[in-house]
Amino acid sequence: MAMSGAAKLMPSVPQAEPAATAVSIQNLSVRFGDRNNEFTALSDVSVDIPEGAFVTMLGPSGCGKSTLLRCVADLVHISDGSISVFGRSPQEARESRDFAFVFQDATLLPWRNVLDNVRLPLEVGKHAQNGNNADPHELLAMVGLKGRENALPHELSGGMRQRVAIARALITRPRILLMDEPFGALDEITRDRLNEELLRVWQETGTTILFVTHSIPEAAFLGQNVLMLQAHPGRVKEFMKVDLPFPRSLAVRDTVEFIGVTAHLRRLLEECL
């Protein structure tokens, strides 16, 4: 298994040559409930996410974008179809620490300080350890929390807590980062800052990122591609390329091109309703 590409914490420019497929989703369906009271969350979803890509997932509430992400993370049982993560099942991928998950809530352990929270993945799931871990101090410096190693979560702001969560996700050097509305609960200024920093982290680590959001500007600003889903039942509306150059700064949002992208996304969203 070639780990070198994802393993190094080195700048790696988004792939120029056609990349391998990181996540391949084929005819995926997810149904909840029993036979009498069945609810179809996802129906016949197929999409390929190339390695190193940054894909944002957007759609009206109830479209199953979080469910799709949780299927990849082996948190939701698949009813039909298949998901392969680097050619393996989600369970195998989870057990070899191919991906990490960042939740909307930072989900830090409140009795552990910042450093020990970042180190949590190294202490649990012993059979899933692969020994290929990043240095927690380097990661904390990367997310701008140098010097706060001994702070307890309740002493940090919401934005700082989410930075800790991102550092914790990166400690196992995951090849894929799954993010479920990670900045959804933050104020706009903090969110903008973290958006910019996440792009920097993505370019520094070369990690594939799947990012669920309900914000159109966020989806357009972060994504190389936007996966638009529609609801009832959840299915793919469009897999759209965002034609904006990298590296992107917040100023890109004032350009005509960016506004064109968000206007198009908004039209698509309205069609979904």
Binding site: R70, A73, D74, L75, R94, E95, R97, F99, A100, F101, F103, Q104, D105, T107, L109, L120, P121, V124, G125, K126, H127, A128
Partner: peptide
């Protein structure tokens, strides 16, 4: 969410 995190980490 905390329990989901532990599951993603394959915690026993």
């Amino acid at each position: 969410a905390m329990l989901d995190l532990m599951r993603v980490l394959s915690a026993s």
